[in-house]
Amino acid sequence: MNDLAIIETILRNQRQFFSEIKQRVNLGQKMRAMIIASLIFFALHGAVMGSSHSVWQALSSAAKLPLLFLATLVICSPTLYFFNLLFGSDQSPTQHVVLVLTAITVTSVLLLSFSPIVLFFLLTTSHYQFFKLLNVAVFAIAGLIGVTFLIRGARLMSDPESEGTQTRRYVVYLWIVVYAFVGSQMAWALRPFVGAPGLGFELFRQLGGNFYANIFASIGEILGFLTVR
């Protein structure tokens, strides 16, 4: 449970946490704590989402949600590292991974904090599109705050006197856009997380369509000008 104390330090004392990453203090321990905590938190939130359908969907989503975030991290981290390296960063790949893991961990903690709310709506509404959009909104809020931590961390960890600081800041912004695109496409590829009402359990749904068109269609159905069939 010492891992949870490290998570609390991220939330409570960000400056100290990022300073320790900059000085490469206990990076391995921090990484381990963040991976374990985010795995648990994502799994719990995934299970809550999948519980709207069936126990199999709950188990499947509990496994897929951590996979979604960690796979996106693996795919996107090299880009951030090499671009930063190109523009004068002296940080190691481990420091980069720990920095990105911080954002992912903050996202997972916020998702955990939203889980009781999602559970409440799961028990009190049966509208699939609403439940899906509620989850998209929750992920958007948690993700935004998570990347805010990444921006803050990148700023605190970079030496303001060094060459290319401003460029590296833009690299982080651009990387966040790429991360969001990769993450949403990964989520689309790994769907379903909620499970469509009436349809049987599926581990993965066939490819086709895209995340953004589906969200637009769901909003359309809730507002009554479009039907998702």
Binding site: L4, L44, A47, S115, P116
Partner: peptide
């Protein structure tokens, strides 16, 4: 955080 984890596990 611990209590939330346990509570969610029970609820799920």
């Amino acid at each position: 955080m611990k209590q939330l984890i346990i509570g969610l596990l029970v609820a799920i």
